[in-house]
Design a protein around this nucleic acid. Structure first.
Lengths: 227, 227
DNA sequence: ACATACAAAACTGCATACACTTTCATCTGT
DNA sequence: ACAGATGAAAGTGTATGCAGTTTTGTATGT
């Protein structure tokens, strides 16, 4: 009977959708760490719903690869092996390369301008060493390139892969000088795109991700909170 | 009370997992066509389970992109627009290209031999015009190349994209001469891989898929059974 | 002190029940 | 006959309860 009044509290999309976003966010932003348990009753309590929608959300997160599930055990924030991490970074590099290449060939004038503006604006963040802000810019920068490829499916694959890598490159910008190096690499990509040089853009983007891969590998936290 | 005896009938993995496989199979093999409804109660009856696991299965299939879902309506076998179809084929071509390139560089001796053997065996299927058998061979052939890249994540992306395209290229081999053309294209890919020429293998695989894309576009069935 | 056995607690998997939404057929007035 | 109203039927969304499994803490023997 009080069954129907609770939800208002959370709402915006559907209940499950909301939870998926919320949980995915916790994982991607590092509020939950790889290996951490996601038990249904706690989550149900946390979001003030029953276990049914929680289970559906977990299943979806499982399909997205953000959480691991096996029968009769709690879902767990995905914790990947070194090999898997490496393969994801390699795939990411390839995907970024493709998107940048296609972006160089296909971006509209407006898209190019927006990319360029955003990129140049980020220089101030680098100079002032604003890690958090630069990180936000960085996400948007890469998204622009995925979208610029004008290919829905590639956008989906790139976004998905990026989300799955997020937990493992959290600290990348803390490496000394990584911020300004990142800016220089972006610069190379942007220039190639603006000049309409697909191959060069693709190569620059590929290299950029490969470097991030190396930078992140150091931080790839060994599995933790197993219990 | 009879609650616990039913499942035995279906079992093998978990109930939901089984259903996901079964439904995905129906979609991929064309037993269910794009646009067709998947209503929860019928599926529940069909698999002799309650709606709860059915809903979880549908949620997972939704995340996989095989079915579309929106609030308060039945799930529907995904039916994509021409633009989306095109973007998926383009992405597929890029992915195949990457996998073939990496395969040329990384396949073990055994993998190369197996690929070569399988490929040559398929010539007989072509000569005899065995569409169904060649189709099965074709799937295996491409899987070998995905696996040969020695990159788990790329394997996953390629497999996933391939599954989502499956409903739309059902009839590809019925085009006159497509069977032997396919064989020739495979031949080019295999030769490049065996000789260890990454760029050539990548290009050959890319071209192969692009051609399939053209061949399939003709058959991309306009949405049907909307009710 | 340590390993093993076992029982209670905690949790997952699924079925069922009910509220809410959409759909569809029938009725009504024109 | 036809457009709009209306209510039953069908279907989705979520809460709850029970069965079965895993985990955990404790007691027991070595």
């Amino acid at each position: 009977m009080t069954q129907q009044k609770r939800r208002k509290v959370i709402r915006a999309g559907t209940t499950v959708e909301q939870m998926v976003r919320a949980i995915a966010d916790m994982i991607v932003t590092g509020a939950m760490l790889p290996g951490e348990k996601l038990d249904e009753v706690s989550l149900a309590a946390r979001f003030d719903v029953s276990r049914t929608p929680v289970r559906e959300a977990l299943r979806e997160l499982g399909a997205m690869g953000l959480v691991g599930r096996e029968p009769n055990r709690s879902a767990i924030v995905t914790n990947v092996t070194d090999t898997q991490l490496h393969s994801m970074f390699e795939a990411m590099a390839e995907l970024e390369g493709i998107c940048a290449r296609l972006s160089a060939a296909r971006m509209t004038v407006d898209e190019r301008r927006a990319l360029s503006v955003e990129h140049r604006a980020s220089l101030r963040l680098v100079d002032r060493g604003l890690l958090e802000h630069y990180s936000a810019h960085n996400t948007e920068f890469h998204s622009r390139i995925y979208r610029g490829a004008h290919n829905e499916h590639l956008l989906e694959l790139a976004t998905q892969t990026r989300a799955r890598l997020a937990p493992f490159r959290r600290a990348q910008f803390r490496l000394t000088g990584r911020l300004s190096k990142s800016y220089e690499e972006h610069d190379r990509i942007v220039n190639a795109i603006l000049r309409g040089h697909p191959e060069e853009a693709g190569q620059a983007a590929y290299d950029h991700v490969s470097i991030v891969s190396d930078a992140s590998a150091i931080f790839a936290a060994p599995a933790q909170s197993y219990q």
